[in-house]
Design a protein around this nucleic acid. Structure first.
Length: 323
DNA sequence: TGGGTATGTCCAC
DNA sequence: TGGACCTACCCAT
């Protein structure tokens, strides 16, 4: 989840359902003291850069959130809420039985972040037309921040970063980040400039948010397989055309991920394979989390290594890794 | 019930 | 390089 595509989807949710609305901002858990700085104010803009989410308020302050490894947003609404990120219409919360919101998962509209069921309890009330009557739902679990409008609610759990910051700090954060294909029109050149200067292995460079923003462990492994590149090659040893192709691949995968909500990294699937991939994320990748299984292309056993304390998956044959 | 795991980042050593 | 942070799910017992 919390790779770049997820955060762009979250930013989209806020843009569609919260921007322009007066928000009650609270911290049910009690650990977000800055809530008082923005409580009762209006969100004027929502956007993402890499894995960072920025919500601008009419106070001039910005709520800056990084989900880290555990974080997740849960959304629910009491009105018809469109989902422009997918072709199907829908609302943010899904009700079942007596209004209990259940069944959300990493890809759902209701919950974006670390994989978990949406934990919004609607109580014992009846529903009306499929929508819970008692809005807003009671917060469940460790909700760091709740943002509530008249008809929509967003609950944040487990973020690594959750701060109210001023414009200077926002600029600093953004300046430290590498290009994001969905944000930076001239991103390719910035990417080439930055990655071409580092002699670190390409498997490390792609994870460096100062070089390129938004790539995480899944996209890293999958992009290197798609490019048939060894993770151990020095980034600055790669031809410019190879680096340009990596940038283009990331731009395409990110756009697809934002559109579908899933990290679809396999091309050319048959209809049945596509259905399997959509239904089961274990069938969705070339190498990620497939250690010990045969490569989908050549049958060689997929290898797991630890690079910088993160799990790295690759096919030694397809990616030309020796020894 | 308890241990293992997770798509991330920072900091101390 | 290893641990801390921090939350919840999944599985074995």
């Amino acid at each position: 989840m919390p790779e770049g595509h997820s955060v762009h989807r979250i930013a989209g949710q806020f843009a569609r359902h919260f921007v322009g609305k007066t928000c009650q901002v609270s911290s049910p858990q009690g650990r977000f003291g800055d809530a008082r700085l923005i409580d009762g104010h209006t969100i004027t803009r929502s956007y993402a850069v890499g894995k960072h989410l920025f919500l601008e308020f009419d106070t001039g302050d910005t709520l800056h959130v990084h989900l880290g490894i555990y974080g997740a947003w849960d959304f629910a609404g009491n009105v018809n809420l469109d989902d422009t990120a997918s072709s199907a219409g829908g609302r943010m919360g899904q009700t079942a039985g007596k209004g209990t919101v259940v069944g959300a998962h990493e890809d759902s509209l209701a919950s974006i972040g670390a994989p978990r069921r949406t934990r919004l309890r609607m109580g014992e009330s009846e529903t009306h037309g499929g929508y819970p009557v008692d809005f807003p739902p009671e917060p469940v679990g460790q909700v760091r921040v709740r943002i509530l409008t008249a008809d929509a609610v967003a609950d944040l759990r487990g973020p690594t970063v959750c701060d109210v910051v001023g414009p200077d700090r926002v600029a600093d954060i953004r300046n430290e980040l590498g290009p994001d294909p969905l944000v930076d029109r001239k991103g390719e050149q910035r990417f080439l400039d930055r990655i071409g200067r580092t002699g670190t292995p390409i498997g490390r460079a792609l994870m460096n948010q100062k070089i390129v923003a938004g790539i995480g462990n899944v996209y890293r492994a999958e992009m290197l397989f798609r490019a048939r590149l060894s993770p151990y090659l020095a980034a600055n040893s790669l031809p410019a055309e190879t680096l340009r192709a990596l940038w283009a691949d990331w731009a395409g995968l990110l756009a697809l991920g934002v559109k579908t909500g899933q990290m679809m990294t396999m091309d050319g699937l048959t209809a049945s394979q596509k259905r399997a991939a959509l239904a089961n994320r274990d069938d969705r990748h070339w190498v990620y989390r497939r250690a010990g299984q045969p490569c989908r292309v050549c049958g060689t056993t997929i290898v797991l290594d630890i690079m910088e304390a993160r799990k790295l998956y690759f096919c030694p044959t397809c990616q030309g890794v020796t020894a």
